[in-house]
Simulated assay, not measured.
Amino acid sequence: MLNFNQLRAFYYTARHLSCTKAAEQLFITQPAITAQLKALEDSCEMKLFKRKGRRLVLTEEGAAIYEYAKKIFTMEKELEDLIQDMRRLKVGVLRLGTTKTYARYVMPTIIGRFHERFPHLKIQVDEGSSLEMIRSLLDLKNEVVVVAKVEDHPKVAFTPLSSEELVLIVSPEHKIAGEKTISVSELHEQPIIVKERGSGTRKLVYDLFAKQGLQPEVLIETSNTELIKQMVARGDGIAFLVRGAVAAEVEQGTLATVPLKEGPIYLDVSIAHLKDEHLSHAAKAFVDLVMTIPHLF
């Protein structure tokens, strides 16, 4: 078994052909270098140096071992540099999860800011429902996720970011489009298009109806926000989506919103990660950055 302290003493001595210079580079005494060299030679059962006058000369065996030692300590230096670059966020990968809606309407701003600050880091973005993204943390697929908080989990830490308003959207031609307000009970028989299972939006809508002792009359469920908006605009049904996802269509007049008599409803948006897992430098930098960006939603 090689002793790396002995090999290191040999490498620096062979590199400079001087025990004195090796001792200076390793910040130890010359007798300590000499002792390490003798121990290595004894372990290898061969002479690694010869003396020619006052000069050290590598033996054939010593020269062969030096070539391997040079590769080892060159790679050690490269590894040390890599670790330093990781600490300084000059290299690394951020594994990030979010919902399809946030991926389109929110994450470009966050990722853009992050890339400006840490241009050398690679970013891998995974999309799915809020529940799927929480499970991706537990499966160690993602380190950090930005989601609606669907449910608590003992292994997941949630840090609130903001609250998003959910709005009722209808076609401008729909019979309730001109109403000042409408109650949830009045929506009971309206065909409604809902987000997929595991979605924070879907859970909030079902909870809203459940408080009135009702079930929504579901026409279709989908993870595709654009499909929901298109179907609502055609008059196929009504839906609840976050205000930011429909702002452009409402302004253009292709969709209309109707306030609820029960008052506005909000979706809690959080950044989440595993409680007992150490965050990588890239993930920690992302969390710190997100917490400093105002008015994301």
Rank of each mutant, 00 (worst) to 15 (best):
F4Y: 14
A9R: 05
F10Y: 05
Y11S: 00
K21Y: 05
E24D: 08
Q30I: 08
Q30Y: 01
P31V: 00
A32Q: 06
T34L: 09
Q36P: 04
Q36H: 12
E41R: 10
C44H: 00
M46R: 09
M46W: 02
K47F: 00
F49S: 04
K50M: 07
R51K: 15
K52N: 06
R54F: 03
R55C: 06
V57R: 14
L58S: 11
L58M: 14
T59Y: 15
A63Y: 07
A63Q: 15
E67S: 03
Y68R: 12
T74A: 14
M75F: 10
E76L: 14
K77V: 05
K77L: 08
E78P: 04
L79Q: 13
E80A: 13
E80M: 12
D81E: 12
Q84G: 10
D85L: 07
V91D: 02
V91W: 01
R95T: 07
L96V: 09
T99D: 06
Y102T: 13
A103L: 04
P108S: 13
P108T: 12
I110F: 12
G112Y: 03
R113A: 10
F114G: 09
H115W: 02
H120N: 15
L121E: 12
L121F: 11
L121C: 11
E127S: 08
S129R: 12
A148T: 07
A148Q: 11
A148C: 10
K149Q: 10
E151T: 10
P154C: 05
A157K: 11
A157W: 01
F158P: 01
L161H: 08
L161N: 09
S163D: 10
E165R: 15
L168W: 13
L168H: 13
H174V: 06
K175L: 00
A177R: 02
G178T: 04
S183V: 04
S183C: 02
S183E: 02
V184A: 08
S185W: 02
S185N: 01
H188E: 14
P191Q: 10
I192F: 08
I193G: 03
T201Y: 08
K203T: 08
K203F: 04
L204W: 03
L204G: 00
Y206M: 14
L208M: 15
K211E: 14
L214P: 03
Q215A: 08
P216Q: 06
I220A: 09
E221V: 07
E221G: 13
T225Y: 12
I238L: 11
I238D: 00
A248R: 07
E249F: 00
L255I: 05
L255T: 05
T257D: 05
E262A: 03
G263H: 01
I271M: 06
A272D: 07
H273Q: 12
D276N: 11
E277S: 11
H278K: 15
L279Q: 01
H281A: 04
K284P: 03
K284H: 09
F286I: 04
F286Q: 00
F286T: 01
M291E: 15
M291S: 15
P294C: 13
H295R: 15
H295W: 10
L296N: 11
F297C: 05
